[in-house]
Design a protein around this nucleic acid. Structure first.
Length: 483
RNA sequence: GGCGCUAUCGUCUAGGGGUUAGGACGGAAGAUUCUCAAUCUUCAAACCCGGGUUCGAUUCCCGGUAGCGCUACCA
C-alpha cells in the first residue's frame, strides 16, 4: 500500500494535516508500505515535491501537440463562467486555435500561460467496476488545465501521472470524481499509458440527504475516535454502507474478515444516508466483544476529562493544564476499571461513561428530591417509612462504618428495612436507590456499593461520597423538605 | 441550463421475469429484572410514476420525476 499526499492546492494544505491524516489511518488499522514518512521506490510521496516530474510530462505533451498553451486571464475565464452559468455549455477552448509557434513566442516574451490538454473529438469510454460502462461525449468535456500559469499542476493531472508512475491498478474513490474521469482517461491516452480500473463509490449523505459535511456532526475520523467509537466498529459500519455480502444477512465483520469477504463488484452504486444510530449499535457489539482491559484503558481519558472539567468549574484552570489532562495513579485506575466494567453494558459510546456514572461522581440529594423522575416514588405509601428506617440503620448502626460497608452488610440492612416497613420489590428498592444515587434506576447494589465505598477512600481531585455521607446529605435535604 | 450518476420498509441493504420480497438499525408490544440498560420473543413497515416487451414485471427496455454530483488555473 502506498500513502501519497495530494497537496497541490497550497491554500488548503498544511503540514499538520498530514500528521492528522496519518494518525487517523493508523487508528483505523490501515497501514502503508510506502509514504512520505517512510520513503520507498516511488519517492517522493508529496505531490508538492514532485513538481519537476509533472512539468516534464506537461512539456512533453505540449511538444507532441497533445496539449497547448492557454493565455486566458482570470477575468476572461470568470466572465465566460458567468455567461455559462446562464446559458450552459463548457469552456470554449478558445486558445486551442492559437498557432503553436506564436504561442511559444508569447510565452518566451513573458506572457502568463497555463497548459491545457486537448480532449480528442470522439466519445470517451471507460469501465467502472461499480457503474459498468460509462461514456461521455467529447463535446461535454472541456480542455482541462493541467499546469497552472503559476507552475503548480492541477489535481486531475497529477493524479494520473502519479497513479501511472506508482503503478496503481485500481482507482477507488468517491463518485463525485466520475465526471472528472473522462479528462483523466484522455490524459492516460495522450501520455500513451494504459488506463487503470476505476471504482466510483457512492456518496455518503447526512440525514437531510445532503452530502455529509461538518454540519452533520461527526464527520472526521478524529471525531468518532473522541466519542469513544472503536475503529473496528467504524470500519465495519462504513463497509456496510454500500456493500453487503451475498445473502445479505451477516453484518458483523472484523477488518480481517472484511479483507477476505469484501468485493468491489458487490458495491451498490446508489448513495447512502449515514445512520449514527446503527453505528452506535455496532459499536456496542464491538465494545462487548473487546478485551475489558482495552476498554478500561480507553475509558480513562473520559473520566480525567470529566474531572478536569469539574475542576475548571470551581478553580480557574489554565487552558494548558486542562488540555494536558493527567493520568491517575494505579489505585485510582484500578478503581476506575471496576467502575467502567459496571457501566459499560449501559453505553454504546465510551464518552457516555462519565455521564452514566454521574451518580457516583455528582451526588445531589436536593436535586434528587426535586426531580420529576422521582415524583412518583416519593408519593408511594411505603416510601417515607423506608427512608426513615434506612437512614436510621445506616447512620445508627455500628456495622455501617463510613466508607467500609460491604455489599453483604448493605444487603442485610436492606432486608431489615424490608421486614420493618413491609415494603418489598420496587417499593423497597426504588426509595433506597434514590437515597444512594439520586435516581430510582441504576445498577445492582451488590456491585455499586463496594465501588462507592472504595471510591470514597481514594484521594484524587474528585471526591466520591461514601454510602453514609450520601445518607447524611439525603437526611438533611429530606428533613428540610418535610419541614 | 448542459452532462453524468442513482432510485426496494423511516434508514442501511439482500433478492430477482412467477417469492408469504429476506436481514439489520430504529419503532411498537411482550417476557425477564427492584429499576434503567442489556438480552429474548412477536408485530408494523418497502419494490418512485407512466409506457413498452412478456402468458406474467418490482426485476428487462424507454420516458418522466426526484435526489445527488460535475460543469474551476479546488481536491
Amino acid at each position: 500500500m502506498i500513502l501519497r499526499i495530494e497537496d497541490t492546492d497550497l491554500e488548503r494544505s498544511e503540514a499538520r494535516f498530514e500528521d492528522l491524516l496519518m494518525d487517523d489511518l493508523k487508528w483505523l488499522g490501515l497501514d502503508w508500505d510506502e509514504g512520505p514518512d517512510r520513503g520507498g521506490p516511488h519517492a517522493p510521496y508529496r505531490q508538492s515535491e514532485r513538481l519537476e516530474i509533472y512539468r516534464e510530462h506537461a512539456e512533453r505533451l505540449l511538444a507532441e501537440g497533445k496539449a497547448y498553451l492557454c493565455f486566458c486571464t482570470e477575468e476572461e475565464l470568470d466572465r465566460e463562467r458567468e455567461r455559462r452559468q446562464a446559458e450552459g455549455g463548457i469552456y470554449s477552448d478558445r486558445c486551442r486555435t492559437i498557432d503553436p509557434e506564436e504561442a511559444k513566442r508569447r510565452r518566451a516574451a513573458g506572457e502568463a500561460s497555463a497548459i491545457r490538454l486537448k480532449i480528442p473529438e470522439r466519445p470517451i469510454r471507460f469501465h467502472d467496476i461499480v457503474h459498468g460502462e460509462v461514456e461521455f461525449a467529447s463535446e461535454v468535456v472541456s480542455d482541462p488545465v493541467i499546469l497552472r500559469s503559476s507552475g503548480m499542476p492541477v489535481y486531475n493531472y497529477v493524479v494520473v501521472i502519479d497513479d501511472a508512475l506508482m503503478k496503481i491498478t485500481h482507482v477507488i474513490r468517491g463518485d463525485d470524481h466520475l465526471s472528472n474521469t473522462p479528462k483523466q482517461v484522455a490524459l492516460y491516452e495522450a501520455l500513451g499509458w494504459s488506463v487503470p480500473e476505476f471504482a466510483h463509490l457512492s456518496t455518503i449523505l447526512g440525514g437531510d440527504r445532503e452530502r455529509l459535511s461538518k454540519r452533520h456532526g461527526a464527520t472526521s475520523i478524529k471525531n468518532f475516535r473522541d466519542m469513544g467509537v472503536l475503529p473496528e466498529a467504524l470500519v465495519n459500519y462504513l463497509a456496510l454502507l454500500g456493500w453487503a455480502p451475498s445473502g445479505g444477512t451477516r453484518e458483523i465483520f472484523t477488518l480481517k474478515e472484511l479483507v477476505k469477504e469484501f468485493s468491489l463488484e458487490r458495491v451498490t452504486p446508489s448513495s447512502a444516508v449515514f445512520d449514527m444510530e446503527k453505528l452506535y449499535w455496532l459499536n456496542r457489539q464491538y465494545i462487548k466483544r473487546a478485551a475489558p482491559e482495552r476498554i478500561n484503558r480507553l475509558a480513562l481519558s473520559y473520566y480525567t476529562k470529566m474531572v478536569v472539567e469539574d475542576m475548571a468549574r470551581t478553580v480557574n484552570l489554565s487552558a494548558q493544564f486542562a488540555d494536558a489532562g493527567f493520568l491517575p495513579a494505579p489505585p485510582i485506575t484500578d478503581w476506575l476499571a471496576k467502575l467502567t466494567q459496571l457501566f459499560v453494558p449501559y453505553v454504546s459510546r465510551l464518552d457516555e461513561l462519565p455521564e452514566r456514572a454521574s451518580a457516583v461522581f455528582h451526588y445531589d440529594a436536593k436535586r434528587a428530591l426535586e426531580s420529576p423522575d422521582n415524583r412518583e416514588v416519593l408519593d408511594w405509601p411505603h416510601t417515607k417509612a423506608v427512608f426513615t428506617s434506612f437512614v436510621g440503620k445506616i447512620l445508627g448502626d455500628e456495622s455501617a462504618r463510613c466508607g467500609q460497608l460491604t455489599a453483604a452488610e448493605f444487603k442485610t440492612i436492606v432486608n431489615q428495612v424490608g421486614t420493618e416497613t413491609g415494603a418489598k420489590g420496587k417499593a423497597l428498592f426504588h426509595p433506597i436507590r434514590m437515597v444512594i444515587t439520586g435516581s430510582h434506576s441504576g445498577p445492582d447494589f451488590d456491585r455499586l456499593i463496594p465501588i462507592l465505598e472504595a471510591g470514597s477512600r481514594l484521594t484524587w481531585p474528585q471526591h466520591v461520597l461514601s454510602v453514609c455521607e450520601r445518607v447524611k446529605e439525603f437526611a438533611q435535604a429530606y428533613n428540610r423538605l418535610v419541614a
